[in-house]
Design a protein around this nucleic acid. Structure first.
Lengths: 168, 168
DNA sequence: TATTGTTATACTCTATAACTATA
DNA sequence: TATAGTTATAGAGTATAACAATA
């Protein structure tokens, strides 16, 4: 109560406003949020996501699209369904994802030689060129995100993240 | 090359299928992803998000909604715009967020005493009751996510996350 | 002039259900 | 019968631009 402006004290209109509308002038109270792992994880992820966008801005690729392109690159000929399973999204969702990458000329829906129901996905030459340029860029960006951690701390950090993922 | 099935070796139809359609039977290659901080951060966040949903399933509250409710609880009377700024979303986006919470009877749009353009947001009695029940539940869940880390490691982990957020 | 809440609009991500072609 | 891709549909989350009321 010590720092609260009471009715008996003088208060400017700004005081009154800031008392009644917290956040207009000062910071808002965060309650228990700053102590939650989930809250800090979310904030870190948002920071990395935004920084990623900046770092690869000229190519207009999201982290999710980068992941999909990597999977296609590393597993040429895989189907949309298998890709969806691998990255954790439904096959109906995958349709539009591949639509976008295909319309940008990065991915090719080739006919599958064994199964006429499915496509064999692969990178187009443009997609391969893009990824050859993008991968080192993304790796450099990723290193930049942990530049304030010592090499030992970086190893520990990734280890912690993996242990949290596994504790599901 | 040692483990690759060559044309001269016998290959069952399943062999052929798995060679041509990686992922159908075995795991897919992940390339450089597992070494990226961003990839592991994302995976950990997805794990925490899903676990959160399970933990508070009966209340049907997302982590984002929980954050909004906390901010309203801790800063009673704040406006939609200030709330949006605090949680990093546009005021036009905040409209539907508050719409949902209000239609569920958790949040009240009270008239602002100073500014007839804006609302003074507060929790309804039901919203307060919900949060009294939810907060310890969320804190317990959050602890569960790092149960495989020692107390010292948990402190370190949050410290790492904050440093990554700041390195933006 | 600037700000608050709102609406219209648009785009991404996400899913479920049902359809077609194929296995 | 089961599976792959697709479409229709729906909901959440996100934004920008413009508007009315108010500051």
């Amino acid at each position: 109560m010590a720092s609260t402006v009471t009715d008996n004290e003088r208060s400017t209109p700004a005081d009154r406003r800031s008392r009644l509308r917290p956040g207009k002038n000062g910071k808002l109270a965060l309650g228990p949020l700053p102590d939650l792992v989930g809250y800090n994880l979310r904030k870190a992820q948002v920071a990395v996501f935004q920084s990623f966008q900046n770092a690869v801005a000229p190519h207009d690729i999201t982290p999710g699209q980068f992941g999909v392109l990597i999977m296609i690159r590393e597993n040429e000929g895989l189907s949309q369904s298998d890709l969806g399973t691998a990255v954790g999204i439904d096959r109906s969702t995958m349709v539009a994802v591949i639509d976008r990458l295909e319309s940008r000329g990065l991915v090719v829906r080739a006919p599958s030689p064994n199964d006429r129901r499915s496509y064999a996905l692969r990178l187009s030459p443009e997609g391969q060129t893009l990824m050859d340029d993008l991968i080192p860029r993304v790796q450099a960006h990723d290193q930049g995100m942990v530049k304030d951690l010592s090499p030992e701390e970086q190893v520990q950090f990734i280890d912690f993240l993996r242990r949290v993922s596994r504790s599901k």
